[in-house]
Simulated assay, not measured.
Amino acid sequence: MDYEYFQVTLGRERAAQKELAGHLYAQASTRAVFAPLLGFASDQALVLTVAGGDIAGAPGVVASERHRLSPTLRPTDDKPPLPGGIYVHNWFTIDGEAVEEFVRLSGEAWPDFERRFETKIHGLFLAQENAADRASGARRLLLMTRYRDLGEWQVSRDPTSDAMQVFLRRRELTRVSLARACVLMPRG
Rank of each mutant, 00 (worst) to 15 (best):
D78E: 05
R169S: 11
I94D: 05
G123C: 00
R171D: 13
S29Q: 12
N90R: 14
W91L: 15
H23D: 03
S64H: 15
H23W: 04
M1A: 10
G137C: 09
Q17H: 15
D43V: 07
S106A: 12
L48F: 07
V183N: 01
Q154F: 10
N130L: 07
F6D: 04
D112P: 07
D158M: 09
L124S: 05
T93F: 09
L73G: 08
R31H: 04
G137Q: 07
Q165L: 12
R139Y: 07
A35T: 10
R68V: 13
D158Q: 08
F117Q: 05
T119Y: 00
I86A: 05
F40E: 08
V183W: 08
D158L: 05
E19P: 00
D95C: 08
R134P: 11
I55N: 01
F40V: 10
A41G: 11
G11Y: 02
F34W: 03
E129V: 13
P75E: 08
V88H: 00
Q7I: 14
E114Q: 08
T145N: 01
A98M: 02
V166F: 04
A16G: 06
Q128V: 07
R169Y: 06
M1C: 05
S64N: 14
E108R: 11
V8W: 07
Y3W: 02
L24P: 04
I94V: 14
P36M: 02
R116V: 13
L178D: 15
G52Y: 06
E13K: 09
S161R: 01
H89T: 11
T76K: 07
W110V: 15
M185I: 04
R146E: 01
P36D: 10
P186C: 02
P186Y: 07
V8K: 01
C182Q: 10
H122S: 04
R14T: 14
M164P: 03
N90F: 06
F117P: 00
T49A: 07
L143I: 03
A181I: 11
V47R: 02
A98N: 04
A181N: 08
A26T: 13
F6Y: 02
S136Q: 15
L46A: 05
I86D: 02
A26G: 15
L37C: 11
L73W: 03
L184I: 06
S64I: 06
R12V: 10
S64E: 13
I55K: 01
L150V: 12
F102V: 11
R169I: 13
G60P: 01
V99A: 01
R14I: 13
H89M: 14
A56K: 11
V166M: 10
T93Q: 14
D133N: 12
W153V: 12
T119M: 00
R146P: 06
R31A: 00
V61T: 04
R187S: 11
N130T: 05
S106C: 10
T76F: 04
Y5Q: 02
V50M: 11
H89F: 15
M144T: 10
T76D: 03
R171V: 07
A15F: 13
R116E: 11
V103C: 00
R134E: 12
I86F: 03
Q27A: 14
S161F: 06
